[in-house]
Nucleic acid binder design. Structure first.
Length: 444
RNA sequence: GGAGAGGUGGCUGAGCGGCUGAAAGCAACGGUUUGCUAAACCGUCGUACUGGGUCACACCGGUACCGGGGGUUCGAAUCCCCCCCUCUCCGCCA
């Protein structure tokens, strides 16, 4: 969410941001509704003041022990007279009440409309974000690690998974429908090993590990910016008015919502391993093979909550990006870092760097990580604040990035570490979690 | 799922129809005192929206908020209804 004052002052800035991000937002209408909302509030405030003051006067009239009442009697007013005044005021306030009622109704509807519109306002991208219409115009910043040459014919992860008996897509689909899978034996172990490695690396860097709810209230989804716009991407448990999260970013970022932290508590660095649920609505027919685009996966996510300071945000953005790159290096996987253009940025993101890991079966880099910073966009929605040195209440800045998401990461991991004899070498960093250095085909 | 108790400011906790946005204590912050620390004393100390004010702060005013939503009333933290949440006991259970 953006400060309404800055929208009032410079609506064009938001219009430009919406155009660049390809986000629908009727800024003119919002500004109109805001004006109406303020006018109603002022009128209502005046009426309520009158009502309160009158009510207090009635209290004085009816209380013979009040100073006002004693003085009135001393000044020669009769009890009858005072009672008449009290009744007169009450009559008057009855009329005020009649005027307040419909105004309150209008106030409610206007505010609802206002709140709804505010939720559609995009966070303007940082000035240094490249302009572009969609992901085809993202800019490659650097490639790290060499794409290896193989002197034998590579199997894709689906074939490898079947031959090694570690991935069973067919039965996953039987149980749960399309875009589901089952990991088995060393496949299940490798999946957990990757997550464990990622988590251990984050703990070593001072991130507090958390175990968080994955079925959350809708406010939490709204607060982090996934609702209302992305509502159709989430699995809903409507009976309980809750949603399954698509990432642990949601509960981690909302952890301190509705709180006012002390500045000396910041920055907060959290990580969580959680299951992630994604409907992938609108992606029918896209990435249909294998483990790339699936409805359920596990991920270690990192979140930083820091002071309201753009330079600090940038600094931490670089830090969380580095954390993810270090994990890929530990997994001995080649990747590239991409500077995401305006058109491919989410509503709330100021800037985003994706990491794409080389995937032989796709003959391209595929997105495995996404590092974003939000400034106060999420914090405003979540009422996530802190008191600064001058005792002023300010909104925090939030950032997040993937540490590792599996099984998607198993695609490059299996495909790039396979050997001519059909085995897969387990990278050094994972061996302690697997107690082996190689995945072998099952004995015939 | 059944029975009971309860939700008030950062925390504890009073208030139970009107001068209460809310006592008191703790914590925090500023100051005095002090060789340092501690103690003592004085002061400050909720949030949101909004009007005025300022280059911007400061500052001055209004309204709302005592779990959420509705109702009664001239007036609700206080009375009534619905919902949510927490705790205790019982049942069930990974």
């Amino acid at each position: 969410m953006i400060d309404i004052k800055t929208i009032r002052d410079d609506p064009q800035r938001i219009k430009d941001a919406a155009r660049l991000k390809n986000v629908a937002c009727d800024v003119d209408h919002l500004v109109e509704v805001d004006a109406r909302r303020r006018a109603i509030q002022q009128e209502l405030d005046a009426l309520r003041t009158k009502s309160r003051e009158g009510g207090q006067q009635i209290a004085l009239c009816r209380n013979p022990k009040s100073d006002w009442h004693k003085r009135a009697v001393e000044n020669g007013r009769s009890a009858e007279d005072i009672k008449t005044e009290s009744d007169r005021i009450q009559q008057e306030l009855n009329e005020v009440k009649v005027r307040i009622k419909p105004l309150e109704e209008e106030d409610r509807t206007v505010n609802e409309e206002f709140d709804g519109l505010m939720l559609t306002v995009p966070q303007p991208a940082a000035a240094e974000v490249p302009e572009g219409k969609d992901d085809t115009e993202n800019i490659e910043l650097r490639t790290v690690g060499d794409i290896p040459d193989f002197d034998f014919e590579l199997k894709d992860h689906v074939t490898l998974g079947a031959d090694l008996d570690i991935i069973d897509i067919e039965r996953g689909v039987k149980l749960a429908g399309s875009r589901n899978y089952i990991l088995k034996g060393d496949g299940a172990l490798l999946h957990q090993a990757v997550l464990r490695l990622a988590q251990d690396m984050m703990i070593a860097r001072g991130f507090v590990p958390m175990s968080v709810p994955v079925l959350v209230r809708e406010e939490v989804m709204t607060g982090t910016g996934y609702f209302p716009t992305g509502r159709d991407q989430a699995y809903l448990c409507e009976r309980d008015e809750k949603a399954l999260v698509g990432t642990a970013e949601v509960p981690l970022t909302a952890y301190h919502s509705d709180e006012i932290l002390n500045e000396n508590q910041l920055p907060l660095k959290y990580c969580a391993m959680s299951t992630c649920f994604r409907r992938e609505a609108g992606a029918a027919g896209k990435d249909t093979t294998g483990l790339y685009r699936i409805h359920l996966f596990d991920k270690v996510e990192q979140v930083i909550v820091c002071r309201n300071d753009e330079e600090l945000s940038k600094k931490f953005h670089a830090e969380i990006l580095q954390n993810a790159e270090d994990v890929l290096r530990a997994l001995e996987l080649p990747y590239r870092v991409v500077n995401v253009c305006t058109g491919d940025l989410g509503q709330g993101q100021v800037q985003k760097f994706d990491i794409e890991t080389w995937m032989p079966s796709r003959d391209s880099y595929g997105e495995t990580h996404s590092a974003s910073r939000f400034y106060e966009f999420q914090a405003r929605r979540l009422m996530l604040r802190y008191r600064d040195a001058g005792k002023k209440v300010r909104y925090c800045h939030t950032l997040n990035n993937t540490v590792i998401a599996s099984p998607r990461i198993l695609i490059p991991l299996l495909e790039l570490h396979q050997n001519a004899d059909g085995t897969v070498t387990i990278p050094e960093s994972l061996r302690k979690y697997m107690n082996k250095d190689r995945i072998q085909p099952p004995a015939a």
